[in-house]
């Protein structure tokens, strides 16, 4: 620091006092080197650096645009595929529902028919059974009358010892029945 300070103080008076930027004798040299360095830098930027940066930027921009385009294309395709996949699925589901409904109706009709048939059969059976029942009842009644006649004959013969005819017994039974 000390050495720098000494050289600084010794050199400035040697060049004469004054404000360094306003020393006109240095101007031609300054402009000369400025023109040279600026020209070099200009050419470097104009021909080397500028085009390369611009190239990179354009390349990147177009790549990004292209990628976005591809992505959109893919999304559109995916949406189409979804529609293509879902349409038959939907149709199949509709068809399944229709078939289901159809079978359900058919089954319901079959059940109803079977029920009706079964009802009819049951009614017929009931009617037959009732007819048989009344026949049996009538038969039984006739058997009972017969038995009563036989019993009457037997009773009279035991009590009186004389045999009454079947017609008399039947008449007595009938008279008792009507009483």
């Amino acid at each position: 620091m000390q050495a720098a300070a000494t050289t600084a103080t010794t050199e400035v008076p040697a060049k004469g006092p004054g404000f360094p930027p306003f020393k006109t004798e240095s101007f031609p040299g300054q402009v000369f080197w400025l023109v040279i360095t600026m020209a070099v830098l200009f050419v470097v930027i104009w021909h080397l650096i500028g085009p390369r940066i611009q190239g990179t930027l354009i390349e990147r921009r177009s790549l990004i645009a292209h990628e976005i385009e591809t992505a959109q294309e893919n999304r559109r395709k995916a949406e189409q595929a979804t529609v293509a996949y879902e349409t038959p699925l939907f149709q199949a589901r509709e068809r399944a529902r229709a078939i289901n409904n159809q079978y359900r109706e058919e089954a319901a009709a079959t059940v109803k028919k079977a029920e009706a048939e079964a009802d009819a059969k049951a009614e017929q059976a009931t009617a037959e059974a009732e007819a048989r029942l009344s026949r049996i009842r009538a038969e039984a009644k006739s058997h009972i009358v017969q038995a009563a006649q036989d019993a009457t004959i037997e009773i009279v013969s035991r009590l009186t010892g004389e045999r009454i005819s079947a017609e008399d017994a039947a008449g007595a039974v009938r008279a008792t029945q009507e009483a």
Binding site: A8, K23, P28, G29, Q30
Partner: peptide, 28 residues
């Protein structure tokens, strides 16, 4: 210490072209 000293243009390699002092300076 002169605060203006840092702005002094000092020749490093003297060079004269067509009567002009275009020495290679610290600024160049």
């Amino acid at each position: 210490m002169n605060p203006m000293e840092q702005f002094a243009v000092k020749p490093l390699i003297p060079l004269h072209i067509a009567g002009y002092d275009v020495s290679f300076t610290n600024q160049a």
